[in-house]
């Protein structure tokens, strides 16, 4: 009996939080973009985007280097080390770029957003905005939301680009793959709409999901230190699971059915 009660309670809570977060998303999406909002959005892009650049580039570089190393040791058995370029670039553009960037983004920017908004709630800053007749959804949530959605695909592209350079460093400069074949086979294999655009679409979807979860968790957290810590953890956990789950669905839709 108790079990049924709890099940019902948690189901109701889940449904109501989906509803509440949708209302928040609606408020953030349709906040009229005034000049002031554009300025705030650009300021937030600096925080969530530019300040994430270092971790994104370093991770991209290393992942590209590891991919080249692993790929080379397999491909060289078949004398196919010339295909290292497309192998590295396709895996990065289609999968690793969007997915790993989104995971890093959730850890680096998502958790920061949740903690920031949760703390603004705990210190009554959101309440005081309300009382000053300034809509916190429009003033605080919306700029952060748009900044995240815009920054994420750019970060993913930068991640993939540094990864490809990392692959070059290991594959060409170190292991001696021919530079001409690294670049030219890559150029011949990678398709703009199928690989690059699909990767960008993925990263936009991931960006949207990460900032949505992060902002909602911050906005709805219990304004105590435990509450904020729980909300921050949940942001990272839920975002990561959502990214990986959505990646499977998107991949199936984009590449699975031919």
């Amino acid at each position: 009996m108790k079990f049924l009660q709890n099940l019902g309670k948690s189901t109701l809570e889940t449904i109501s939080s989906v509803g509440a977060s949708s209302i928040m998303l609606y408020g953030a999406l349709f906040a009229l973009p005034t000049w002031k909002n554009v300025r705030l959005t650009i300021a937030q892009m600096h925080v969530v985007g530019v300040q994430s650049l270092l971790i994104i580039m370093v991770s991209g570089l290393f992942i590209g280097m590891v991919m080249a190393l692993q790929g080379y040791t397999i491909l060289v058995n078949y004398g196919a080390e010339g295909s290292l370029g497309p192998m590295v670039s396709l895996s990065l553009l289609r999968e690793l770029g969007p997915v790993v960037t989104a995971l890093l983004f959730a850890g680096r920017a998502g958790s920061a957003l949740t903690a920031e908004i949760g703390l603004m709630k705990a210190t009554e800053q959101l309440s005081s905005l309300e009382m000053m007749a300034v809509d916190p959804l429009r003033r605080v949530v919306s700029p952060r939301f748009w900044a995240g959605v815009i920054s994420m695909p750019m970060l993913a592209l930068i991640f993939s680009a540094t990864g490809i350079l990392g692959g070059h460093v290991v594959g060409v400069d170190w292991l001696g793959v021919d530079a001409g074949s690294y670049w030219s086979i890559m150029q011949a294999t990678v398709e703009w709409d199928k690989d690059v655009v699909n990767g960008i679409i993925k990263s936009i979807v991931f960006g949207l999901v990460v900032v949505w979860i992060a902002l909602y968790k911050g906005y709805s957290c219990i304004p105590t230190s435990e509450g904020i810590s729980k909300a921050t953890t949940e942001t990272v956990v839920f975002s990561s699971l959502a990214i990986l789950g959505l990646d499977f669905i998107l991949t199936a839709l984009m590449f699975g059915i031919s």
């Binding site: 210190t123 009554e124 800053q125 309440s127 005081s128 009382m131 000053m132």
Partner: peptide, 10 residues
């Protein structure tokens, strides 16, 4: 209407 919060809420 203005409100002065206990914490200041600056």
């Amino acid at each position: 209407i203005s409100m002065l919060f206990q914490s200041g809420a600056l």
